[in-house]
Amino acid sequence: MIKKYDISGEDFSLAGEASSNFKSVLKRLGISTEIVRRVSIAMYEAEINTIIHGGGGECEAEIKSNAISVTFRDNGPGIANLELAMQEGYSTASEKIRELGFGAGMGLPNIKKYTDDMLIDTAPGKGTTLTLIINL
């Protein structure tokens, strides 16, 4: 089963709609609370990044027999130094985003912590594609 979502880069108050919808799909399918929570947190972090750093994009979430795989794609600025971006505390978020309670540089490390696999394809000017995988 595949769900697709448009991630609008315009309205930050809508950030989390995709994660929220997919969470209710997983719950309805009777997936365990622990797995649902891990997917939700990782997906929400990635969704926020797609909006605040990538300027919006799209998301494809798939439930396979042995895993849940969620991909976020944007055509934003890309990440120049991925090793740096993966470090806890590194953030380029604006003052405005920080006032909303984000921009602590915890998102990518947190996605890694909550998933079984995390793949990032990114380059300056090319945009960013992030896939997170949680085994069932």
């Binding site: 930050f12 108050s13 950030a15 989390g16 994660s19 929220s20 969470k23 609370t33 929570r37 939700s40 947190i41 929400y44 926020i48 909303l100 309670g101 984000f102």
Partner: peptide, 17 residues
């Protein structure tokens, strides 16, 4: 408990159960 009142507080709460 928080001093922030934007919609992402509710979203965050939702994701964390």
């Amino acid at each position: 408990l928080t001093g922030l009142i934007n919609s992402q507080v509710i979203r965050t709460a939702e994701m964390m159960d």
